[in-house]
Design a binder for these strands. Structure first.
Lengths: 216, 216
DNA sequence: GTAATGTTTTACCAACCGGTCAAATTATCG
DNA sequence: CGATAATTTGACCGGTTGGTAAAACATTAC
């Protein structure tokens, strides 16, 4: 009997693991460039090299694929912020946070766009995660930044808007890649733009946060 | 005979103007929150309070609505950058550019999201405008900024990445509004976040661009 | 080998989608 | 008023969409 929809079984087979991985990989491609509503199961199935009913054997609905993808991405996406060390040196912590976020924009642009698409369209699937775990993490790190400012290690500033500005400036290179490419023209070639961006952003934030007359 | 599809006539009637406006207004709502592919004519028609065939009497295709909307938005969207004055004071020019972009994010978030959706999904409808008029304008203003740096009025920096960072930080408050709301929680209420953002961003960019040891 | 389980395919469905058509209705103008 | 043009509606169409059912096929366990 062929009842079990890959869920009834306790143990996942080798084929299941492979196929699910292939589906998620394909879905990342499709969802990140068309958004949830604009993507079709057929597109994902084709990108994954299988038929639609076959794909639906592994994931019962389009939502199920999307949810699993979002969950996975959200976790790794916050990794750099989690790594923010309260006991570290403020300058190097912020500098390396910027650098890591920029590396992620460079190396995982699809993940960034998947996330951006979701937020842009009102985050219908992840509102809870934003208000829960995300807010909690940001609150925690904001307090760290505030403490640094109190100790005079960096200029006084609103830590939330500081974090927003680091998010937006770095993710811009993934999310608005087409625009960046159009504007930079020939200078876009290769990955040089990421080095230029890193230099610019590190300069901006380091000078912008420097305590006047002192060293960070 | 009822042939004319609102195009054959030279003169637009009062009804035509009103209805077209209502359709574009409704389409802005729908497109900005679902993207092009994710939006349906039915949704737009319902939001505009008319039947689908009636809507299609004014705009022949879904693309036609979208194109007109994009054209209109793109023009006003670049207005602040156009206003950038080469002969003005660098500090106040940059400061007021930031402020104006932030005001637009506050007052026209749907327009920002429409644009963001389009870029995110690969800008299939406006690639030419990005590579043409947009690039040209940015090139021109980048040269202005570079000149200011050469004259020692602001710190040396890559003008393109400066512009990108102003775009991204300001538009973030429109495009990622849901996330900003989730993270700020109760502090999101009202429009105070825009004043906080303005204060933070002006500080960041003003200090970040200040020539060390001198005044801008 | 064979029986049980796991995987893939073919055929299909109801709902939705962008868009058309012709007829009915309403506004405009002399 | 009547005629003409502008607008609105309802019925419809072919193609796509998310998803299902069942049978065919492959794999594994004994």
């Amino acid at each position: 009997m062929a009842i079990p929809r890959a869920a009834k079984t306790q143990r996942r087979t080798r084929i299941q693991e492979e196929k699910e991985e292939r589906i998620l990989e394909a879905a990342l491609d499709v969802f990140s460039s068309s958004g949830f509503r604009g993507s079709t199961i057929d597109q994902i199935a084709e990108a994954a090299g299988m038929s639609k009913p076959n794909l639906l054997y592994y994931f019962r609905t389009k939502e199920a694929i999307h949810r699993q993808l979002i969950d996975r991405v959200l976790f790794t996406w916050l990794e750099p912020l989690r790594a923010f060390d309260p006991d570290g040196n403020p300058e190097s912590e912020i500098r390396s946070y910027i650098r890591r976020k920029l590396e992620m924009a460079r190396d995982f642009p699809r993940e960034s766009r998947l996330f951006a698409n979701e937020i842009l369209q009102g985050a219908p699937h992840i509102e809870d995660e934003l208000k829960g775990p995300l807010k909690q993490l940001v609150d925690e790190k904001a307090e760290v930044i505030r403490a640094w400012a109190r100790m005079g290690k960096i200029a006084k500033c609103d830590p939330y808007h500081l974090i927003f500005s680091i998010w937006s400036t770095t993710q811009h290179y993934a999310d608005f890649d087409v625009q960046v490419r159009a504007v930079l023209g020939q200078h876009y070639a290769g990955e040089g733009r990421f080095e230029d961006a890193a230099r610019f952003l590190e300069g901006l934030f380091m000078e912008g946060l420097r305590v006047r007359g002192g060293v960070m």
